[in-house]
Amino acid sequence: MKSVVYNPTETREERLTRHLPMVKRIAGQMAAQLPASVDIADLEQAGMIGLWDALERGLEQSAAQFGAYAAIRIRGAIYDELRRQDWLPRRSRTQERSIQKGIQALTQSLRRPPEDVEIAAHLGWTLEAYQAALAQSSLQLVYLEDLSPGEGLDFTERHADNSIAQPDAALQDEQLERDLQSAIMELPERERMILSLYYQEDLQLKEIGQVLDVSESRVSQLMKQAVMRLRASLQAHGAAPAR
């Protein structure tokens, strides 16, 4: 069966308009995995730039090839924009990596979730220094730079290839969800409860502290420690690359 080629008389603006739903769909999917502070309109604007770039470079592709290629360019442009807006200082990111690796090593050796004092001792930090590092950490499960670890190239340039279609990510997403559910079940009971109260019951940190009879700052520390454990577990399953 012969591939359908785009009408050569169709203008770039017409093609752009025809693929706007793809931009909105991809931006919406990515926004669902990002902090609420990220404006979906910004993602859509970046995605539009990726779509326009795809139209500039992929004029001779078949319909199926262009759809896959455009999705790569759209997603890549959004990743690159988010990386440029990354708010976490490099020093804090380095500390997070150290904590994550420490948790992973201790979990493997102890065969149980390590206590915060054990993590601090493993890192050679005081408990106060460890808790201060937690306070500066983020709640992001997987970093954008983890998703695009190449040297000297942005996500779009590394993944754009006119000759191949975008791999279907559905199975990978399902595996990530299973790994995440498993990692949550392995959390210490109190940390698992905090995540449940925060994300499912919509309680504020202060309210969770009242339920658990701890301070709001302690709830924040435990929540971020839970995220560190989840990252370590996902990395162990190959879902989140180490840095």
Rank of each mutant, 00 (worst) to 15 (best):
Ile184Gly: 08
Met1Lys: 13
Glu96Ile: 08
Val117Pro: 01
Ser233Thr: 11
Lys24Pro: 00
Leu147Gln: 10
Leu153Lys: 06
Glu56Thr: 08
Glu118Asn: 06
Leu234Ile: 06
Leu43Glu: 00
Val23Lys: 00
Gly67Met: 05
Pro149Gln: 01
Ser62Thr: 15
Ile74Asp: 03
Gln235Leu: 08
Arg57Lys: 10
Arg15Lys: 13
Ala36Gly: 12
Glu128Trp: 00
Leu212Gln: 09
Thr107Phe: 02
Ser37Gly: 10
Leu144Cys: 04
Glu189Ile: 13
Ser137Cys: 02
Gly124Trp: 06
Ala183Asn: 12
Thr11Leu: 13
Gln131His: 02
Gln235Pro: 03
Gln204Val: 09
Phe66Thr: 05
Ser98Lys: 09
Leu195Ile: 09
Ser62Asp: 13
Leu176Arg: 13
Asp116Arg: 10
Ser182Thr: 14
Thr126Tyr: 00
Ala64Asn: 12
Ala135Met: 06
Ala105Ile: 06
Leu147Asn: 09
Ala239Met: 10
Gln140Tyr: 00
Glu13Gln: 13
Glu96Trp: 04
Ala239Asn: 15
Gln104Thr: 06
Ala236Thr: 12
Leu176Tyr: 15
Arg15Glu: 05
Gln61His: 13
Trp125Val: 00
Asp146Ala: 09
Leu176Ser: 11
Leu234Val: 07
Asp154Ala: 07
Arg18Pro: 02
Asp39Phe: 12
Leu171Gln: 01
Ile103His: 10
Ile26Met: 04
Ala132Pro: 00
Ile119Phe: 01
Thr126Asp: 09
Gln95Thr: 04
Ala68Asn: 09
Ala71Met: 03
Ile103Val: 15
Gln172Gly: 08
Glu96Ser: 08
Ala77Ser: 09
Asp173Gly: 07
Ile99Tyr: 02
Ala70Gly: 06
Ile40Gly: 01
Val214Arg: 02
His122Gly: 02
Gln65Val: 09
Ser92Glu: 12
Ser62Arg: 12
Asp146Trp: 01
Pro89Ala: 08
Thr126Glu: 04
Thr126Asn: 04
Asp161Lys: 05
Asp86Pro: 01
Glu118Tyr: 10
Gly152Lys: 02
Tyr130Gln: 03
Ala46Asn: 06
Gly124Cys: 05
Ala232Tyr: 04
Leu234Gln: 05
Leu88Cys: 07
Ala236Lys: 07
Ala71Gln: 03
Met48Lys: 02
Gln235Trp: 03
Ala54Asn: 00
Leu197Asp: 12
Ala77Arg: 09
Gly76Ile: 11
